[in-house]
Write a protein that binds this DNA or RNA. Structure first.
Length: 284
DNA sequence: AAAAGAAGCAACCGCCACGTA
DNA sequence: CTACGTGGCGGTTGCTTCTTT
């Protein structure tokens, strides 16, 4: 791309975990101006990171519409099936799991699903397998496979399935916030200070402990990884809109593969104007 | 209560594809 | 055509947290 970031000399880039301040800077910047050329984002946002790091942080953590927490059984089955069809194409899988990132899916696979599959394989069966091919990622994509050749999955059964799971998941997204099951809540990790801060100072902490059914705003803020109170984005306009509307619209917008199906901006044109960003954030 | 091991997760690294000069 | 910059992706690492002993 003809994107001249900056002239040399190259600055020393920070590494490691992102601080709350860095997150804030990146989030504010991208929400305001969009990312455009990632290599220029850290410069303009006043971050000592490289563009790649910013991009990754945004995509995996700060991007609106992210759905964090335990994978549902439906999502799990989707991943298993997609893995059978696609192999280790995590980003493609992520397109069919709204609110999930490729990194998240990949981690989930390596830490849990892979073992589960291997165990099932060891017993010589896998009841959830619609196709009978091996789940082994290394041998499931022969050189002459359609995927390698840059084609869409030709199997109609597969396509139907993908459409189905995509639709199903889209409908099921808010369910994680309705589940009384504690295990379905996102686990608070060391890096989730933003949300924690907000819980600690508001009644939302109670919602966290007791369930989210009666506190949609909490679910909303949690999904975004930051509290409503702190974010100018919400102060400016989203707070004017029904939380659930925005919640839904963001998930609808998130999935590139199904973006065409969701042109209904029920939450109003605010969403377009407020989200002054491009490519993978808003698909219009 | 403390230590060791396992699991979960965020982020880095290296490679590749693509666009531009 | 070549070199370079950038975005994107998958593999891997290493830190943090949880669980077990």
């Amino acid at each position: 791309m003809g994107c001249k970031s900056s002239d040399k000399p190259k600055p020393k880039h920070r590494k490691g975990l992102w601080s709350p301040e860095e997150d804030q800077r990146l989030r504010n910047y991208v929400l305001k101006y969009g990312h455009g050329c990632w290599s220029s984002v850290p410069i303009n946002a006043g971050l000592q990171r490289n563009g790649k790091s910013c991009r990754l942080r945004w995509i995996n953590y700060l991007r609106p519409g992210l759905k964090r927490g335990t994978f549902s059984t439906q999502e799990e089955e989707t991943i298993l099936t997609l893995h059978r069809l696609l192999g280790n194409k995590w980003s493609q899988m992520a397109h069919h799991l709204p609110g999930r990132t490729d990194n998240e899916i990949k981690n989930y696979w390596h830490s849990y699903l892979k073992k589960k599959v291997m165990k099932a394989e060891g017993h010589g069966s896998n009841s959830t397998t619609p196709c009978s091919s091996s789940p082994n990622s290394h041998n499931m994509q022969p050189l002459d496979s359609p995927i390698k050749a840059g084609m869409q999955i030709p199997c109609y059964e597969s396509l139907e399935f993908l459409e189905k799971v995509s639709t199903d998941l889209d409908q099921s997204i808010p369910q994680m916030f309705q589940s009384p099951n504690r295990s379905s809540f996102p686990k608070i990790m060391f890096a989730e200070w933003l949300s924690l801060d907000s819980f600690a100072t508001t009644s939302e902490a109670d919602a966290c402990r007791g369930g989210l059914q009666e506190n949609p705003s909490f679910g909303h803020s949690f999904v975004h990884g930051y509290p409503l109170d702190e974010d100018p984005f919400y102060h400016n306009s989203i707070s004017e809109v029904s939380a659930s509307d925005v919640f839904m619209s963001q998930f609808k917008l998130h999935d590139q593969s199904t973006a065409n199906e969701f042109i209904d901006f029920s939450s109003g044109d605010d969403v377009c104007s407020v989200f002054n960003m491009n490519s993978d954030i808003i698909y219009i």
